[in-house]
Design a protein around this nucleic acid. Structure first.
Lengths: 275, 275
DNA sequence: CAGTGGTCTAGACCACGCT
DNA sequence: GCGTGGTCTAGACCACTGT
């Protein structure tokens, strides 16, 4: 009975005021329904979602609300939007599988007969003709973080090598790899023209008389930085895998890759642990 | 002086029309400046950003524009917002390091003297008293995907075990792990009351007379699903690491964890590759 | 050109956290 | 109660993609 008087309230007019969101906010209702359609394959990967105008009509909400719902789906990695075209259910991309076998020299040796390979062209059958490598070499003093990974004094001079790797025209990976400068200065390894080096880092070190005995990789994930979003063409809602690699000879660290950045929608890392 | 003629333009009135965005959109200008402050530590982790009202005044834009800028920073994982309080520079969380040593039985044995440990309590010194485990066991037929990971026929009955793992009250991990039902039915392993099992899966299998020889982990990253965001209390802009694990005895797969889900802002996976 | 999304404004009211 | 962010509307104009 306390509510009997409710209907008598002078509610300005009728639906003049945006109804209060006592329950789930409207943009969530829209997002939930679209998410359902995507996850149940009612809208299969790659297919267009209804246009903003259509959603305004279907749900009876304003454009701002529709756009908020779509922004949520993008942040969840379920949809991508292209200006002038529309919003799509996120297509499933072919996955690049990176196994730890890629570091074994025997595998590298085998590929000598065919096209050049490195630790990141294996596991996918990418051919020499299908990938490009942009690189830039510099001599820099070790930062505190890198020095710690090398177990060297900060300021020790390093050869820093930055790579951007494309396969089939699509950027697949950025990385920064460092050697202690005194290890490589004056050798073919220090010459950018020799990249990509068949057999990769492990073979490079082998030509310097160094046999790699262990590699340690630390894997994290995060959202891409601004530069990475552009360079790797990462759509919103897609994280990156960030791998830090230490290459060991016995207890000595002879190479460090600070941040191997891989778009997570196209990459799987595979590790075997033998017990 | 270059602006003298400006005031003579018949610009309808004065600032009546939102200036066209010939260059960078305004919300990006706001976001770029705030990002700069965060990354240069002008606003250190955990500290409040200016309020929306303050940003409206500082940049002379509308509230919608300010909110769009903040949404961008959240999506980049740089800021988190709390209703009624404000927006903070994202605090740096203590990282849980998960090394592959955690699977070695010798390590598990060592911990027998102290509090119970599993493969996911090691590497962090978490004590029995500091973590809780929620679990739910079910008997289910293998889906096509799981059957393939086991190399078994789809429909084979499995014991499916779901876990939610908390440390210090904070949810740290969700996972679903499966054993072939005929392997464990009627044994202590099939009893949820025995979890957490000291020494973890590897020790469980050992009591069944099975010695694990190899573990394969496949690591991917993605944005969390709706349920994961709630269960693991993941703020927006933080991805999850999704690990698929196969536990081998020789060539036989005796355990599969379909999706070990780890919040990426609190986790680092470490793998050693011996060559 | 029409249709799509991108940017921006002004104003309204609701809900949370504090003091 | 005040200040914070959360939700929503209505309308405007810009910019891209197609025919």
């Amino acid at each position: 009975m306390p509510n009997c008087s409710m209907s008598q309230l002078p509610e300005s007019s009728v639906a003049d005021v945006p109804a209060p969101h006592a329950e789930r906010p409207r943009y969530r209702v829209v997002a939930d329904e679209l998410r359902r359609r995507i996850l149940t394959d009612a809208i299969p990967p790659g297919q267009l979602l209804p246009s903003e105008t259509a959603l305004i009509d279907e749900f009876g909400v304003s454009r701002g609300t529709v756009r908020e719902a779509l922004a949520l789906l993008r942040a969840e990695g379920l949809a991508i939007t292209e200006h002038g075209r529309g919003t799509y259910a996120r297509p499933v991309l072919p996955v690049r599988r990176l196994g730890s076998e890629r570091y074994r020299r025997e595998v590298a040796q085998l590929s000598r007969d065919g096209p050049p390979e490195t630790s990141f062209t294996r596991d996918q059958g990418i051919r020499w003709s299908a990938y490009q490598l942009e690189r830039e070499f510099r001599e820099v003093p070790a930062s505190a973080a890198v020095a710690e990974l090398f177990d060297l004094a900060p300021g020790t001079m390093l050869l820093e090598r930055q790579f951007l790797f494309r396969a089939h025209g699509v950027p697949q990976q950025m990385s920064t790899s460092c050697y202690p400068l005194d290890l490589v200065v004056g050798t073919p390894v220090a010459d950018p023209a020799n990249e990509p080096w068949p057999g990769g880092n492990i073979d490079q070190l082998h030509t310097l008389g160094i046999t790699v005995t262990r590699i340690r990789e630390r894997v994290r994930a995060r959202m891409p930085l601004a530069g990475e979003t552009e360079a790797l063409r990462i759509p919103s809602g897609v994280p990156v895998l960030a791998v830090t690699r230490q290459t060991h000879t016995g207890d000595r660290v002879v190479e460090v890759a600070v941040d191997i950045v891989l778009p997570a929608d196209r990459t799987e890392l595979v590790y075997d642990i033998d017990l």
